Simulated assay, not measured.
Amino acid sequence: MSGYQLALQQLTDSALPTGAFAHSLGFETYVDASVIADEASFGVWLSAFVSQQLTYSDGLAIRFLYEGVDIGELDALLSASLLPRQVREASVKMGLRLLEIGGEVFPSAELGLYRDVVTTGRAAGHQPLAFAVVARSLGVPLHEALAAYLFATATSLTQNAVRAIPLGQNAGQRLLRQAAADVAAAVERIPHLTPDDFGALSPGLEISQMRHERQRARMFMS
């Protein structure tokens, strides 16, 4: 077993207290509108989310960091491209928690530098960048880091959907098995994207995320 594998499992475990349980990243808007009401309809949304927002935003940011793009520049790009305020704030909230946990459990000089930049207000501290810094410092290859991050996000969202729609636990596992194919496709696609692709995602996803802020009743923060 490679030395980083157990650490990677800990880093992507749903028990890691980043606050992901508090965010739907927009699917709750569709639940409120009865567009998402069951296993099949949530599966359609999750597939779109993985193949679009996770691929062209978080996943591409992780790849660029691995390739040596300045982390401050990537942080600013994420802040600018995440147009829905709640989603932008969710990325930062979960990123700050990951930076805090990483500093205690997976310390590295690279992580320390990013924390300093965030602490001094020169960067926001987005979740995919915090994850990428930790993963790269652990020696995790890019394709494994991408697969782990994307699937962990899909897992968190599915667990939240199980509670919110609600769905049965078996349905949640079926959805994750389906999501694995979308994650694998995204991992194959991300290395071939260009900087011009960054932030290219469906307006429908962004609009639903913006509408969530004014939803009358909700379980999630985003």
Rank of each mutant, 00 (worst) to 15 (best):
P84M: 07
D13K: 14
V140G: 14
A145T: 05
Q10A: 15
V92N: 04
Q215E: 13
Q178C: 04
V117F: 12
L11R: 07
Q86P: 00
F220R: 00
P141K: 10
P195T: 05
A184F: 02
K93E: 10
G102P: 09
A217I: 05
E104Y: 13
R174H: 12
A161M: 01
Q5S: 03
A90F: 03
V87L: 09
E206Y: 01
D116M: 12
A22C: 07
E110R: 15
E144I: 13
V118T: 14
D196S: 07
L205E: 04
R218H: 09
A135H: 05
T194A: 01
L65A: 13
T55N: 00
G68P: 11
D13T: 09
A109D: 11
V187W: 09
A152F: 03
A76T: 11
S156F: 13
F106D: 10
V44M: 05
L83K: 13
V87P: 00
A37W: 08
A164F: 02
M221P: 00
A20D: 05
S34Q: 15
S14E: 06
L113R: 15
A76N: 07
G3V: 07
A145V: 09
V117K: 11
S51H: 01
D70E: 14
G72F: 07
L46M: 04
A145M: 12
V134Y: 09
N170P: 00
E100R: 15
P195W: 04
T12Y: 07
A48K: 10
P107I: 14
F21S: 12
L78K: 03
R115A: 12
G72P: 06
T119A: 15
L83H: 07
A217H: 10
R174I: 03
R163T: 03
R216I: 11
Q53P: 05
D70M: 10
G19P: 11
Y30A: 15
A123R: 11
A181Q: 12
Y56C: 05
I36V: 09
D75P: 01
V31G: 05
A37H: 14
G121Y: 04
A124D: 05
I165W: 06
V50G: 08
L65N: 09
K93S: 08
P84T: 00
